[in-house]
């Protein structure tokens, strides 16, 4: 089938490009790993504080770490696209018979694969440090992360086609991603936060995701945050994907 062949050829190109620059995969992991090594131990003293979730420091922090990975590494996917707009590769692919859909999906599949690989490495490190978690919960968490990754990478590609410049993209991404992270309870649980911050965070899909992931790690599949985060992130991912494919169709970047 035409689509499958185009997709696999394009995916092969993208993944090969990433493997040739593995330094980027590690740079993307640098910040989360620092948090794991230098920040998570600080949480050990907090267990028992009122409002601190059950499960020990690593079971509380690692879910946040995974969401951080999903947020930041895929948000920067568009930088690669800017480079390829400049090198002419994007235009060149658009003039071949390959469909726009296969071009975009191949990039997203690459980003999701990289994200999963990074998450597995991060989980391995956390396990070495003493994380104990439900395996089924971990797998569902990974699915949640894939949805987040699709959302962020799609937004990043649409932005890349809109702005076409790395510096402009970096400022937009930082402006959006930093408050999203701070208001998600990635580092410290929002249950510790003042009411006003909790209220603002209640419209942040990532806050539900972090809560859902923490329950999943403990093997609890019944928390309402799980359904809410799947619905919110899934809906947003569909919108973002539509934005990206539309940009690609009319970009002719």
């Amino acid at each position: 089938m035409r689509f499958a062949s185009d997709f696999s050829v394009l995916f092969g190109r993208a993944i090969k490009g990433s493997l040739r620059n593995p330094v980027w995969l590690f740079i993307g992991m640098f910040q989360p790993v620092l948090y794991l090594l230098l920040f998570a131990p600080l949480l050990k003293g907090l267990s028992g504080v009122p409002g601190f979730p059950a499960g020990g420091a690593y079971a509380v922090f690692t879910p946040g770490l995974l969401v951080m990975l999903a947020l930041f590494t895929t948000a920067f996917a568009g930088f690669g696209l800017v480079e390829h707009i400049r090198s002419g590769l994007v235009e060149r692919l658009l003039v071949t018979p390959a469909s726009r859909l296969s071009i975009l999906l191949a990039l997203l599949a690459r980003d999701v694969s990289v994200l999963i690989a990074q998450s597995v490495i991060a989980l391995g490190m956390a396990a070495l440090l003493g994380l104990e978690a439900s395996l089924a919960g971990l797998l569902v968490t990974l699915v949640l992360m894939v949805v987040t990754g699709l959302l962020m990478a799609s937004c990043s590609y649409a932005l890349a086609m809109l702005l076409k410049r790395e510096d402009a993209m970096a400022s937009v991404l930082n402006t959006v991603a930093t408050p999203l992270m701070l208001l998600s309870g990635i580092t410290l649980p929002l249950t510790l936060a003042p009411k006003i911050i909790q209220a603002i965070a209640s419209v942040n899909p990532l806050a539900y995701e972090v809560t859902a992931a923490r329950s999943l790690f403990l093997g609890n599949f019944a928390d309402s945050s799980l359904a809410v985060s799947f619905a919110l992130l899934g809906g947003l991912a569909v919108l973002a994907f539509w934005w990206a494919i539309r940009s690609l169709r009319k970009a002719a970047a």
């Binding site: 190109r13 090969k16 390829h84 090198s87 002419g88 590769l89």
Partner: peptide
């Protein structure tokens, strides 16, 4: 179609 920038993948 060969654009001014070319279109070859620099990392391939």
């Amino acid at each position: 179609y060969v654009s001014q920038a070319g279109g070859a993948d620099p990392h391939a």
